[in-house]
Design a protein around this nucleic acid. Structure first.
Lengths: 170, 170
DNA sequence: CCTAGATTGGCAGTATACTGTCAATCTACA
DNA sequence: TGTAGATTGACAGTATACTGCCAATCTAGG
């Protein structure tokens, strides 16, 4: 019995692969974000970190990484850069000498407030080529897929972790 | 007339933003790819480059970047690593001393053939949590969106560029 | 022919991402 | 109480990505 013939190797197979499309779309999304926000000198990651610190003042780096689902190693340099720009400050925790608590500075809170319209323009532009109904469908499916694949990523999203520093048990 | 009140800044707004979802999904996709393909020591980018060189033997680095829509600067180091693993070789072109032509080695062709089942498992796993009909819907919308946003990325996909080295005019 | 502009590949610099390791520190259990 | 194991932040090493610059080279126009 002859074995199945191997399918031909084509670029079209690459172009249609989910992984390739996710990569391309992410690159396009970053490109649009940077274009709309170039006046603010903030990257998408730095923006997400600022929002999380704004929402959870006094969070530490490890929990921050869980809240935005970014790698903890990467986050170290992100925090350094935000600190160098005077958008955040780090204060050692009194009860636990390992932990450094993160807070927005006045400038950080200011730039966060100012950049929001540009961020919203960027997010809208990413989906603009689709019809409104299709935008909604795509976002709904993507939210589902990211959520159902949460554990597949090295840094699963743990939104509730952010509350632990307020004394709630894990 | 009072101005509209600023909307509150929440993490939920970040979690629902297209850019955030594209980033998360890309990270998950890379994670799944690396897991399925860990026996082969090939990254997603390296895999795409191998396929493109297989499909277009004798392509140069600049056209390769257009065919897979990856940044040319980045591609330099990708090519170096593939060359260090003896999967590709570079030959200077005789007519144009600037150009170095890319070819798969015997090992490169071999690993490409061997890795395909693992790549297909990875691609399937990325979408597995969705119902089959939803997978199709998502892929259709994503192909559309990437195509319609093609010019928004720094390196737009130019699939037809790959044919130019065969003598066809651009 | 000869030069202005384009192309090619290489490099430096910055910013994510991830793996793995480490010391300092804390916690919980024996 | 003492210590094994967990946690936190830091670091080294690798691999994308992108911006901008550069020298070598090619091409087209005058």
């Amino acid at each position: 019995m002859p074995s199945k013939p191997a399918p031909p190797i084509t670029m079209d197979a690459v172009y249609a692969a989910p992984g390739y499309l996710f990569r391309r779309m992410q690159q396009i999304a970053v490109s649009i974000f940077m274009e709309e926000c170039k006046a603010f000198d903030l990257t998408p990651v730095q923006y997400a970190a600022l929002v999380a610190i704004h929402t959870h003042p006094g969070i530490d780096a490890t929990r921050l990484s869980a809240v935005i689902a970014f790698d903890r190693s990467t986050l170290g340099s992100v925090i350094e850069r935000l600190q160098a720009k005077d958008y955040i400050e780090r204060k050692p925790a009194t009860e636990d000498k390992r932990i450094k608590l993160l807070y927005l500075t006045r400038q950080g809170a200011g730039i966060l407030k100012d950049i929001i319209p540009a961020v919203e323009r960027a997010q809208a532009r990413m989906l603009e080529p689709l019809k409104p109904a299709d935008r909604k469908t795509l976002m709904t499916l993507l939210v589902q897929l990211v959520d159902l694949n949460n554990e597949a990523s090295r840094v699963p999203l743990r939104a509730e972790d952010a509350l632990e520093h307020l004394g709630k048990a894990g």
